[in-house]
Each structure stands twice: as C-alpha cells, then as structure tokens.
C-alpha cells in the first residue's frame, strides 16, 4: 500500500503523520508538495494538520486552491481514499469534498487536550477496525474546530450515517461538557456520501504508541490498511 502526505505551506503535522505511517506502521509513504501533481498508484492521500497559508481569510480557504487539490478531487471521485486531519478536514470542507464548515471554537480558546471519541459507524474504510460505540482516546489541538452545517445538511448526514465520530465523555455520553469546541451535535468527524473521504478534528497520528498516552489512533490507520488490502470486499460499502 502507498500513502501520500500533502505538504502545504504552513502544514505542521505532516511529519507526525509521516512518522506514524512509516516508522510505526511500516508502510510506504511519501511527502507530496502542494504545487506538484498527485503521482499515480497512491492508495490513500492524507491532508495533515497545521495552518496552511497562515489560516488567512478562513482556515483551509487558500489550501483548497493549491495546485494538487484538483488532482485530489479527481482521485476522490475515482474512489481513492482521502483522510483530512484538523486543518486537512478544514481544507476538505472548503473544497466541497465534505459537507459543512469549521468555525471558531465556541470558547474562543485554542484547545489542546486528549478527548474521548465514540465511533458511530464502522462500515467505512476509516473505521472498520473499530466496534460501533467503541471509545477512542485522541488528542485535539485547534482553535477553529467547531463543526457547523445547516439543518438540511445535518439531516442528510444522519440519514446517510456520515457522522463517524462524536465527542463524548468517559462513559460514552455526547454531553455539552465533553464537546471541546461547540461542534454541532458533538460532531468530530464526517465522511462523504461515497464513504471514501473522511475528515476529523482529532489527531489519530498523535496517538499511535502507548508512550504517547494512547495508541487508539491505530484503529483509523489499520482500518485504511485493511480496506486497501481487500478492495474487492469493499469493507466500507456495507
């Protein structure tokens, strides 16, 4: 399996993702400069966290127009797996690959802490290794992670079961206190209708070894590896 990690000017978790994939997971991975074309033969493209283009105008607004993003849109349309983490999630929303938008945290404060996430759906290439309702302990670190979508979009998300992760407390309850940023309906991660594009605010790449406090992030990466390993089964197609 071949992974690509896009590097935008201002990306800063690109090396975290690269290290998790290469050293921890022993996978083939390459950095992709945002001005280059997407090489052929990739199985999964990751848009990492950071502050692409300094978060000017809106988070992810400029990253969306990086030359490589045209290829990413095509790659996704062909069924390629695309994972957007934090700023990568913001870019995917801005580019229309995912519904909704991410705005300033309700608290107005940057949050940097481990949170609990509840896996809501497992028939996706990003969550098939987890059990429905399973809790993951992953860190968040963002100032603009408050998920918003209008009522019609939220309804569609629920109908198609596109909400894959929700912020919950240690008991698995989606309470207001467990919501670190004011996200609508405690939403922490959503996928597209075709289930091959996934964006989330928490950082699975920063929770891939026990020494980091949690290795729950491996659930996301191992699901992707599993899905690519048996595309004929289309593990995510339900």
């Amino acid at each position: 399996m071949r992974w690509g990690v896009i590097v935008f000017p201002g990306s800063c978790d690109d090396h975290d993702v690269y290290d998790a994939i290469k050293r921890v997971l022993k996978q083939k991975v390459e950095f992709l400069w945002h001005k280059d074309r997407l090489p052929a033969g990739l199985d999964c493209v990751v848009l990492p966290g950071g502050f692409s283009y300094g978060d000017y105008l809106r988070c992810g607004a400029m990253g969306r127009f990086s030359p490589i993003m045209g290829d990413v849109v095509e790659f996704a349309a062909r069924g390629g797996l695309v994972l957007g983490i934090c700023n990568g999630f913001q870019i995917l929303c801005e580019s229309g690959l995912l519904p909704g938008a991410l705005v300033r945290n309700a608290s107005l404060q940057f949050v940097c802490k481990p949170v609990y996430l509840r896996v809501e759906e497992t028939d996706t290439p990003f969550t098939s290794s987890a059990k429905k309702g399973q809790l993951l302990r992953l860190p968040v670190k963002h100032g603009e992670g408050c998920y918003f979508a209008d009522a019609a979009t939220l309804e569609r998300l629920k109908e198609n079961r596109q909400v894959l992760l929700r912020y919950v407390d240690a008991k698995g309850k989606a309470t207001a206190a467990a919501n670190p940023n004011g996200s609508l309906d405690n939403i922490a991660g959503v996928c597209n209708e075709a289930r091959n594009v996934f964006g989330l605010m928490p950082h699975p790449e920063d929770a891939t070894e026990k020494i980091l406090g949690s290795d729950d992030g491996l659930k996301i990466f191992s699901s992707i590896i599993l899905a690519v390993g048996r595309p004929e089964k289309k593990a995510w197609a339900g």
């Binding site: 705005v103 107005l108 408050c146 918003f148 004011g182």
Partner: peptide
C-alpha cells in the same frame, strides 16, 4: 458576515 444560526462567539464576547 456570518449567516443567522451560525455561532459567533467573538461577537458574543
């Protein structure tokens, strides 16, 4: 400007 219904925590502050 933000649409109605979108949280504006800066405005609130």
């Amino acid at each position: 400007s933000f649409k109605n219904g979108v949280l504006d925590p800066q405005g609130k502050a």
